[in-house]
Amino acid sequence: MLKVTIDNITIDVEEGMTILQAARMIGGKVVPPAMCYYSKLKGTGGKCRTCLVKVAQSSAKDPRPMPKLVASCSTPVQDGMVVQNLTSPEVQEARKGVVEMLLVNHPLDCPVCDQAGECDLQDLSFNYGMEETASEEERREFPVIDIGPFIKLHMNRCILCYRCVYAADQLTSERRHGVMYRGDGSEISTLIANVIDNDFSGNVIDVCPVGALTDKTFRFKSRVWFIKPMDAHRECGRCSGKGTVWMFGNEIYRVTGRKDQYGEVEEFICNECRFEKKELASWTVEGPRKIKRQSVISANHYEKMVQPSIIKPIEGQMIPPQNEL
């Protein structure tokens, strides 16, 4: 076991863990936001840079700080490491800068986006008080395309987190889409139009942190906060059959994986469960899905969201106390 201290809270973690994983063990506000890392997909992380933290002490053996902020999702902990997230104004500043970058080309078309209300970028920009950017430049524009019979791509909204690329690599037999071109001209696309059709391809929608990949069988039927997520299961030969059905009255509007507080699904589900089983009779409903994440859906309205405050470290004292988190 290794000892690591994050925002003055010390815990024991196993060797090989990243700072972000250690922070998630503590939970609460010390957990850095992660837009590209996805614990269930190998190789994700490192790209969005929202999870930057400061390593004030590299390890017990080498007490020097790390020269730059590091991506907590891809930096392994070392014994005696001291990390600052909320307790570092430098980190908060840098993260604000990153969020602003993510918004430079983002259309902020939340009023017409079906991810609104369950969008990680919306939550992030709200938390960092940057609902807009200082950029006056024209935004990149791409046409909306069908990348498969069930999936639509709004490239304008994509933050190039690469999660969908890893998902297609790891969950489907053959990846048919990827990142084309480079720099700010990068885009998610397919070489042949409308080719993504695979038993597990629908999972790219669940892993997408924004409204770039959306479910064509659901689009525009309703805003997510009007419909109720319910945990449900069914007998399925392809996947676990454990999903979340989103209901309005007795109707199922859409089916997704069961997402946890970090926006990650507990288990990936198959396309049949996701796209083809929209009758209540197909499912055994277990009860309302408890969404622990701080988001517009659970808070029901923007005003109720709590802005995280910077906690000032006091020498030798453990703050914030664990029970306040």
Partner: peptide
């Protein structure tokens, strides 16, 4: 630099094009 950024990480992808525009 805008042309040569791989576009993988957000500060460089967005920042290089932003600086070039300005």
């Amino acid at each position: 630099y805008r042309h040569e950024s791989c576009g993988q990480c957000s500060p460089c992808r967005e920042g290089t094009s932003w600086m070039e525009n300005v």
